[in-house]
Design a protein around this nucleic acid. Sequence first.
DNA 1: TTGAAAGCGCTACCAT
DNA 2: ATGGTAGCGCTTTCAA
Lengths: 342, 342
Amino acid sequence: MNVTIYDVAREAGVSIAAVSQVINGKGKISERRRREIVRVMERLNYRPSVIATALAGKRTYTIGLLVPDISNPFFAEIARSVEEQGHRLGYSLVICCTDNKEDRVERYLSLFRSKSVDGIVIGTGIGTDDKETIAPLAHGRIPIVTIARELPGCDGGTVVVDDFAGGRMAAGHLTALGHRRMAVLAESPKLSSSRERIRGFREGLGEAGVELPDAAVVTCGGQPPVAEGKRRASELLRSGDRPTAIFCCNDLLAIGTLQAAKEAGLSVPGDVSVVGFDNTILASVTDPPLTTVAQPIERMGQLAVDLLIRRLANETDEPPRTVLQPELVVRESTAAPAPSPI
Amino acid sequence: MNVTIYDVAREAGVSIAAVSQVINGKGKISERRRREIVRVMERLNYRPSVIATALAGKRTYTIGLLVPDISNPFFAEIARSVEEQGHRLGYSLVICCTDNKEDRVERYLSLFRSKSVDGIVIGTGIGTDDKETIAPLAHGRIPIVTIARELPGCDGGTVVVDDFAGGRMAAGHLTALGHRRMAVLAESPKLSSSRERIRGFREGLGEAGVELPDAAVVTCGGQPPVAEGKRRASELLRSGDRPTAIFCCNDLLAIGTLQAAKEAGLSVPGDVSVVGFDNTILASVTDPPLTTVAQPIERMGQLAVDLLIRRLANETDEPPRTVLQPELVVRESTAAPAPSPI
DNA sequence: TTGAAAGCGCTACCAT
DNA sequence: ATGGTAGCGCTTTCAA
């Protein structure tokens, strides 16, 4: 096996208690002894077992991250940021992908409990009603922070962007350009973020005196998002009075829309404008580059981890809800609508 | 605390040994007792502690994944695939990003040891000479499998694409189109994959009687890759006899090249052709869509995990090296060079 | 078939 | 200042 605290103790001619003390930097030991022990630890290339340490009552220094799909650039960037801040603070990341399957959420939450993660960051939606799935949480006493979305009944804290404001920005941009007939490609209505974006978009439209009929809000439930977005956008673009602009609740759906437009022989933004959400790397490389509502992804990850760590350090009386401001990034997928042929 | 095996035993009126047996499905217990115990476990919502289980000599059912950057779509897709196959087999993933910093490789490898992961998948390059960094491995007896690149001195097994063939394909495509003056944007020469791709590219060129001067191979060391690619490509495109085609060792560099061309007022593929490598989601959305050498990413992740699991199950006598075939995906970033103005 | 008990590597408390 | 020792939750002999 690996070298243990016993090996170090024996080699240094001291008790394991002494070694433990130098590991944790507490207790009383003479400088002489401590240096000797450190030397031995290095010579033996000793690394304390996190497993044993955790069993003995300490943390595992592990945080669990739940996202729908790590290959989705938005979540990849979230993960990156969480990973980075986590490591900065001494924690490593266990990542699980739920694929938006409800049973997986439950399974992974349960898994996190059995693996004794110190805290959980949730970036995935939860379908069923709160109590059922959030149960393991209250059960296990593991602090949970949600990121980029809110979960009903999850009180651990949350870091989100102001989705409502984001939707409103998109609407403002589009109406200012002169659009009147618009549609939105939405994610699951189960997602708080998606609902808020639509609500904000509708509000923004209203401020310009434009209506958004319910029928113009299309839910893209299927997987994968790009293909589903393309499919739904195609339907929209084929319809009688096709919209002059489409607001997509994330960049992936916007890309699908771009593809659909291309396939239909429509030019973007000439024939139809497209606005995305997230501002992932994808938005900057598409054809045309995507106008999108940017989330401060890196900042969100940092804040989520900070909040979580403070939570499990019991510095509790935090404002549990951090709301960051989104920002409209105008690229080349939006323009004034073509003059309508009278 | 959480409910433990003792709680279950007490509640069921049996010894913890009995409970342990039903957990592990071995030993002899009467069907009656076993059912009763299962009932109690469910009622108490009992989940065995992986920590304690591991300390008692079992696995942690955790695998460590080392990548340069999880927000890089290529590695995000690798991670996705590894995560998926891992979970299918009962393992979860600890992901660490090295950012190509050598000291981090060492730190994370050491971290994996102290966290007692059962196995490690490495998708990052290692700079220094083998023995130094790979030491913790031999030391800890943790099986390691490399993916998408090979590490000197790492004998645990590897799953790669035939990078040489990939480079050769790119060259074949470009020379068939009529290109004679080409350049390549390379990743770090420390990466086996990068070296092989260049070697293959050069070989392919040679088959068409075309030379690739050393000066035409530009290393993109800096971060982030897109920006660095753009910078280097700009230099290339500004040079006296600018290449009519650029082969980029990954899609990110290719995107930088696309941006550089755009900024220089050059059309792709009209003025310059661009070939990428990896075929991440990015390649399909760029302007223009990118011709690239596809790696079977999903398959690679699966195979890497399979290999690793078999390794730690001691079904050892495996062919330690799996080589998959790449595939050229022709999109719209390549075309015949413009007729040279005589 | 069942249970008592010895670890696994470490922390923390209590004597010394 | 230093070391002995009782757990932490679980697996695994070994007796009964």
